[in-house]
Design a protein around this nucleic acid. Structure first.
Length: 426
RNA sequence: GUGGGCGUAGCUCAGUUGGUUAGAGCGCCGGAUUGUGGUUCCGGAGGUCGCCGGUUCGAGCCCGGUCGUCCACCCCA
């Protein structure tokens, strides 16, 4: 409820300190993990030319752009995703950079759509991209970053899992099962919805979309949804998709070698909406399946070229702060918010204020956090403020101690007091 | 964009079949306490009951619209 006529726009968030604390907690963890893997941070403008997304991102995104015409008659949009900006930025400079390029960013992204749980009009998204390496070692490296990004918060294999697919393998499998080339987009659409649709409805949709009979459609769905590395090797291992299955095997093995095997599952029903993915794709989900995807990514070997840059293979992912925040809250992994202060200076009488200010500023110069009352107040009231502001220690400046060149230092947690020489503080 | 639930203090909520001046807890401010916080006690501020209109002698309560929020669909950054 908002009685103010200056209410927040729907789908946008304010970040008072207690909420900003969670956002910072998340972003600091992301940054630590990125750096642990040798990634460098970059950013771009929040407002981009509309052209950057049309035809490159897929219709779903373009339909929901936060777009408008600016005062210079330019068609612009708040950025809905970071990857096209990354492609443009690299387009200008990748030729002179050594490969592979390891870059990450934490942009605020925008989409114009009705808000719901885990889905606002704005969010912060951790983007990690590895550009210039086409082998699956790069894919494995990127998924490892995503997994470690969640492990950094204390989440484990019982909390989330990575579901991994490969569009080339899926295409090969569908071809083997008799789905015609031109019917594959329809088949992808049905497979994407498999989880949210009763099996008989899906069969029907697949049959009408591909021209297969009901039995064949049922067989396709069963084979796709139960696919494992072993079953894929049996079915398409000797076809032209055999190399792709072998890559997928190498990918899973690499993650296993890193000790992350428990997090990874082959699941060909993961399709992902974005049009530019070309190979292995993955999504991270909470194990209970209560929340939306926490993270999604994959390989996009064509995009840089499409945006007019050097043709470079690339793989990356995006992880949003909203769903992650919900998962952390549910697992009680959100650190409690508390303001803290090294010192609070209490003055027994207002005429000692200059001395208090001198002490306070000397401590601040040394890098300590210090606060004090800004107007004349009784000692009891000042103590109350000190407590509320989270002071670890209160320094009491009083005439008796001052005469001896001392102040009283009270430990606010334990309640013990001792005298400190003024000379030791300043 | 479609359909549905819910909007009472900063927060969580109560509010009788429609009836006088709308309440509680927590939080906030002040006091008990002019050299000592957390506990306790006392007091205070804070509401056009989301907004607009309708029905009625009378609306927080009923009706319509609208905005916000949540859920489902759509779809997923």
């Amino acid at each position: 409820m908002s009685t103010s006529s200056f209410a927040r726009l729907p789908g946008f968030r304010d970040f008072p300190p207690e909420d900003l604390a969670l956002r910072s907690h998340i972003m600091e963890a992301w940054r630590r993990v990125s750096r642990r893997y040798g990634f460098l941070e970059y950013d771009g403008p929040p407002l981009e030319s509309l052209d950057l997304y049309v035809e490159k991102s897929g219709e779903e995104i373009v339909d929901q752009l936060y777009a408008f015409t600016d005062k210079g008659d330019r068609e612009v949009t708040l950025r809905p995703e970071m990857t096209p900006s990354l492609a443009r930025i690299l387009g200008d400079r990748s030729r002179s950079m050594s490969k592979p390029i390891r870059w990450f960013s934490m942009p605020q992204l925008f989409r114009y759509e009705r808000q719901q749980r885990g889905r606002l009009r704005e969010h912060f998204q951790w983007n990690v991209d590895l550009v210039g390496e086409e082998g699956v070692a790069a894919d494995a490296e990127v998924l490892a970053v995503a997994i470690d990004g969640l492990r950094e918060f204390g989440l484990g294999a019982s909390d989330f899992r990575a579901r991994v697919s490969d569009r080339r393998v899926l295409r090969g499998l569908l071809a083997t099962l008799g789905v015609a080339e031109d019917a594959q987009p329809a088949a992808f659409a049905v497979i994407d919805k498999l989880e949210r649709m009763p099996r008989d409805k899906a069969e029907e949709a697949l049959a009408t979309g591909t021209g297969l009979d009901a039995a064949a459609a049922g067989h396709v769905l069963e084979t796709v949804s139960s696919a494992t590395l072993a079953s894929l090797e049996d079915l398409v291992g000797s076809s032209e998709s055999g190399a792709d299955v072998q890559s997928l095997r190498d990918y899973v093995d690499a993650l296993g070698a890193m000790g992350l095997g428990d997090f990874v599952e082959i699941d060909l029903t993961i399709v992902r909406g974005l049009a530019y993915y070309t190979g292995i794709v993955f999504e991270l989900f909470d194990r209970k399946g209560e929340l939306r995807a926490i993270c999604g990514g994959g390989r996009y070997d064509r995009l840089l070229e499409l945006v007019g840059g050097e043709p470079l293979p690339a793989v990356g992912f995006g992880m949003g702060d909203v769903v992650l925040g919900e998962l952390l809250a549910e697992r009680k992994l959100v650190p409690e918010f508390a303001s803290t202060l090294d010192y609070f200076i209490v003055t027994v009488s207002w005429d000692l204020r200059s001395e208090a200010l001198r002490v306070a500023h000397a401590l601040r110069d040394k890098g300590h956090s210090v606060s004090y009352a800004l107007r004349e107040q009784g000692v009891g009231k000042q103590m109350k403020s000190a407590s509320r502001e989270g002071a670890r220690e209160v320094l009491i400046v009083g005439p008796d101690e001052l005469a001896r060149g001392c102040v009283v230092a009270r430990d606010m947690e334990v309640g013990t007091e001792r005298e400190i020489e003024l000379a030791d503080l300043t």
